[in-house]
Amino acid sequence: MAPLGQPLLAERQGRHAARQRRGQAYKARVAAAHRGQRALKGPVVLSATLYPPTCQTSDLGNRLKVLEDALELLTYLNDSQVRRYRDVAFADGVHGNVARVELVLDGQEWAPPAEVEAERVRRAEQSRPGSGGRRWRATGPRKSWGASG
Rank of each mutant, 00 (worst) to 15 (best):
M1I: 02
M1E: 04
M1Q: 10
P3Y: 08
P3N: 05
Q6M: 14
P7Y: 07
L8W: 05
L9R: 10
R12W: 14
R12N: 12
Q13D: 02
R15F: 12
R15P: 00
H16R: 15
H16L: 15
H16V: 06
R19I: 09
R22C: 10
R22S: 12
G23M: 12
G23E: 14
G23I: 10
A25T: 12
Y26V: 05
A28N: 05
A28I: 02
R29E: 13
R29T: 06
V30Q: 10
A32C: 02
A33C: 00
A33D: 02
R35S: 09
R35L: 13
G36N: 03
A39C: 14
K41C: 12
K41N: 01
G42M: 01
P43K: 02
P43R: 12
V44W: 08
V44I: 08
L46M: 13
S47A: 11
Y51R: 01
T54E: 13
C55Q: 13
C55I: 11
S58L: 13
L60C: 02
L60R: 09
G61H: 12
G61P: 03
N62G: 15
N62W: 05
R63S: 04
V66R: 10
V66L: 13
L67V: 04
E68L: 12
E68G: 04
D69Q: 10
A70P: 00
A70S: 11
L71N: 02
L71Q: 05
E72M: 05
E72Y: 12
L73I: 00
T75A: 11
Y76Q: 11
Y76A: 07
N78Q: 14
D79S: 05
S80W: 08
S80E: 15
S80N: 08
R84N: 07
R84D: 09
R84I: 00
Y85L: 04
Y85V: 00
R86H: 06
R86F: 03
D87F: 09
V88E: 06
A89I: 01
A89K: 11
A89P: 00
F90N: 09
V94T: 15
V94D: 13
H95Y: 09
G96T: 11
G96A: 08
V101Y: 02
V101C: 15
V101S: 14
E102L: 00
D106M: 04
D106G: 01
E109Q: 13
W110G: 03
A111L: 04
A111G: 03
A111T: 05
P112W: 10
A114W: 08
V116I: 08
V116N: 01
A118C: 07
A118F: 05
E119Q: 06
R120D: 03
R123I: 00
S127R: 15
S127I: 06
P129D: 14
G130N: 09
S131I: 07
G132Q: 11
G133H: 06
R135D: 14
R135Y: 10
W136P: 00
A138I: 11
G140I: 14
P141G: 09
R142G: 09
K143S: 15
S144L: 15
S144G: 04
S144M: 14
W145F: 15
S148H: 10
G149A: 13
G149W: 13
